[in-house]
Every structure is written in structure tokens, then in C-alpha cells.
Design a binder for these strands. Structure first.
Length: 187
DNA sequence: TGAGTGATTGACT
DNA sequence: GTCAATCACTCAT
């Protein structure tokens, strides 16, 4: 099981190290879990990050202690799930873009109204829906309580990197990471 | 107080 | 491949 100290590392390193880990979410409806196969790093020195313009009510958790949940609303209908990184005072977080479903797959299908397993968690807003994450989860710890993280076997996994998706600033940064040959990454 | 934009998705041509 | 949906946030009046 991953401990609090794990998150106190540079956001780019954390984004890579989270690949292969299993994210588990407990709700009243049941348990869902998936292996993290795609992430992106965001930092306060990075123009594409919400924390770039300083601490606000929306981004305040990014500046708090690492290992906490940052969920935000965008495009009028979508939620995205992040885990904060780096020491308290630094606004940084890792966006979880895609998961490979491992547990609670029936519940995911029910929540997503989809039957295809490849379409349950293959995008940042999809996995939020599939796992039943809401704005009420904002600020919760990502490694205890309702959320759990289990370290994976990252040894033999091949990690790729490239430009991030869906942003207009700082496109040159290769801060998107995914597991090679995974069928569950977005797009 | 108001216009412009966005770390997206799903439906449609 | 293109495009609408729809609202919180930012920045400019």
C-alpha cells in the first residue's frame, strides 16, 4: 500500500510512478478499482495548469499537502480527477486520464450506461463517472479512507511520454505519460 | 457585470 | 472529420 510520503516528489516523477498502480474507490453502491494507465502532470510554473495563476478557492487543494484529491468541473458537464503532488505550498497535481478496470466492472457499466469494457475508463471524465467520484470528494486523502492506492508492478512496464491533450498553453512540454500497448488509454 | 475560454465527450456527417 | 452541450472561472470593462 502506498503511504503519504510517496506523493512528496516532483509532479513529473509522480505522474510516471503512478502508472501501473491500482486506484480503488469505495462508495455506498460498492467498490470500483482500476489500474492507472495514463496520466498528465500539472505544475504552478506551467501555463496550462490551473494553479499557474495562483491559489484560488478552486485550486486551493493543489497548494495543500500532497496525496489529496483535486476534482474540477469543466466544459459545463465534465469532472476530472487529480492527485496533488509536491510539498505543501507548491501548486501541483497529476491528472488521471485513463484506467484499466479491475474491480466493480458491473457497477462501472451501470454508471456509464455502456457495456464495452474499453469505454468505461478511457478518458479523464469517463473514469470519474465510472468510479462514482463527485465534487464531494474534493480535498479527501487519495491513499486512505474511501480512496486507496496499491503499488503496481512498474518494473517490466514500458512507459511512453508525449505532449498533453486538450490544452492550448505549453504544448511543448512532454508531460503526458502512458503505458505502452495498453488498450485502455484515451483516444 | 459581461464576454471569452476550457486538463471533454458523444453524436452526427 | 466536425460540432454542440453548458457552466465555473478569469479577465476586461
Amino acid at each position: 500500500m502506498i503511504s503519504k510520503a510517496f506523493f512528496n516528489q516532483s509532479v513529473v516523477e509522480l505522474a510516471k510512478n503512478l502508472l501501473g498502480c491500482e486506484l480503488i474507490h469505495l462508495t455506498a453502491e460498492g467498490l470500483t478499482a482500476g489500474r492507472i494507465v495514463e496520466t498528465e502532470a500539472y505544475h504552478q510554473t506551467d501555463a496550462a495548469s490551473h494553479s499557474f495563476r495562483g491559489k484560488t478557492t478552486r485550486t486551493e487543494v493543489m497548494f495543500g499537502p500532497p496525496g489529496h484529491v483535486y476534482v474540477y468541473f469543466t466544459y459545463g458537464m465534465h469532472w476530472c480527477f487529480n492527485i496533488t503532488a509536491e510539498r505543501e505550498g507548491i501548486g501541483a497535481a497529476v491528472l488521471i486520464r485513463a484506467l484499466e478496470p479491475t474491480q466493480g466492472i458491473d457497477l462501472m457499466k451501470q454508471r456509464r450506461h455502456k457495456d464495452n469494457i474499453n469505454d468505461l475508463c478511457s478518458g479523464p471524465s469517463k473514469l470519474v463517472q465510472a468510479m462514482g467520484i463527485t465534487k464531494d470528494d474534493y480535498g479527501k486523502a487519495a491513499f486512505k479512507g474511501q480512496f486507496q492506492l496499491k503499488s503496481g508492478t512498474t518494473d517490466r512496464l514500458q512507459v511512453c511520454s508525449g505532449p498533453r491533450i486538450g490544452i492550448s498553453q505549453a504544448k511543448d512540454k512532454k508531460w503526458r505519460f502512458w503505458l505502452k500497448d495498453s488498450a485502455f488509454v484515451s483516444r
